[in-house]
Design a protein around this nucleic acid. Structure first.
Lengths: 239, 239
DNA sequence: GGCGCGCCTTGACCGCCATCAAAGAAGAAC
DNA sequence: GTTCTTCTTTGATGGCGGTCAAGGCGCGCC
């Protein structure tokens, strides 16, 4: 069984694709076609994958790490659009239009991504309508996330957003057992993801701590009682 | 030439479809297929087309009027996502997933929309991959708008947003000739579209008036010198 | 005409949160 | 170890803009 190096890589890519949202359930032949279009790329922490306006080369799938997609205004302030993690894909929106990428993408931590090249993939879409539907579904999901983000930032305060984030980290918000949360990024970065700055983030954590809702030790936040935090969240959301 | 009533309606629909973003350039046979899937609906001012969470019946094309898509938080505050006007389509995102509509849709003024029914359209998409690509393009555009909205609301102040809106109403921002703008909606509604309230909107208009940039008389705003307003906008955007 | 009802404007107030500043704490580099 | 940088926390301050309240304006309607 002589298997070439290229063949090996292909098998690895196919397996990788099968494990991501877009690929699950897809027939192997399609995955192979996509694999042949894909170019892997490693990114160091802080490295940029693309910048706003760059011409689209295709869309990306995160194999490992986390990619922060954001926009920068003229004063240099950043607004996080979304942080994409393992298995997620992004920038599909650039497939169908010739405008460039709509934001900047930077690795939050050391990451590995797959670039699925645009032209070849469009050709595939034309042959496989069901794949096109899947892309539509993927973009729908992104739209929903974005709408949620918009609502969060304009209709909810920082306290609510943080409480919401903390509750989401708990496997079961009704289970009174304390949940330790290990931050994979600095608090400053997490603050940015939540649409605020480190100072406000810190103050809000302190507020929760004073209320006995959480414990903070270095980069570990412990939700002392998920149901209590959940109740606070409900009070906020319920007016 | 005996032409049935149904045939008449179909011809009207096809013409209507040809004039909207999604339909331009599409072969007539496709337009006819879509026409057969479409249900026209009239809405009075203030009437709701759908509410958040309603199961998706399909997507919509605005034939006449304006549809405000927004979200409401628990306290009843609304965040405008986008206002769709003649020729635009929306809620395509509900085609590919079985989740309901992600927001509320209400007619800002008396409107006429086409509902393109979901199931039939999905069938069409499977037969016409190029149409699927077109839907992808349409959703890309929505994503871009949404990203822009997010940036606007979090990275720009009301003054900048209003200046931007005013400049966009001018056919040529470099032409010093005054441009009268007739509002089709109340100032309160326009304020909401810009992500603020009527009081702040009013104050910002007053500020521009004091600077001699605009004139306000009832529901008519006159940009006295588009280039001056444009310059102000550039100063804001340029830091 | 007079009345009533929204809309619009302006003033007063204040809360959220970003910014600036300063001082610990924690690593990283050497 | 020392030094230096980065992160984190806490205090002080201030601004943007939302809310409440009170007229004024416009306009339809009787």
């Amino acid at each position: 069984m002589a298997t070439s190096l290229a063949e090996f890589k292909r098998i690895g890519l196919v397996n990788s694709l099968r494990n991501c949202q877009l690929g699950t359930g897809l027939p192997t032949t399609d995955l192979e076609t996509i694999a042949d279009l894909a170019i892997p790329k490693s990114l160091e922490k802080g490295e940029y994958l693309f910048r706003e306006g760059d011409p689209s080369r295709g869309f990306y799938i995160v194999q490992r790490g986390a990619i922060n997609v954001h926009r920068v205004n003229a004063l240099g302030k950043e607004q996080v659009i979304h942080v994409f993690r393992t298995g997620e894909s992004f920038a599909e929106a650039t497939l169908a239009t010739d405008k460039g990428y709509p934001g900047d993408a930077r690795a939050v931590e050391p990451s590995q991504v797959l670039l699925v090249q645009r032209d070849g993939f469009i050709g595939l879409l034309k042959r496989r309508p069901d794949l096109a539907l899947r892309m539509l579904a993927s973009m729908s999901a992104h739209l929903r996330v974005l709408v949620g983000q918009l609502e969060d930032l304009t209709l909810k305060d920082v306290e609510t957003r943080l409480a919401n984030w903390l509750v989401k980290q708990c496997p079961d918000s009704q289970n009174p057992k304390p949940v330790p949360i290990q931050l994979t990024v600095t608090k400053r970065v997490l603050a940015a993801e939540l649409g605020t700055v480190s100072e406000t983030f810190s103050r809000t954590l302190a507020k929760f701590r004073e209320q006995g809702l959480i414990g903070v030790k270095g980069r570990t936040i412990t939700v002392l009682s998920p149901p209590k935090l959940w109740a606070l969240l409900q009070r906020h959301l319920g007016g």
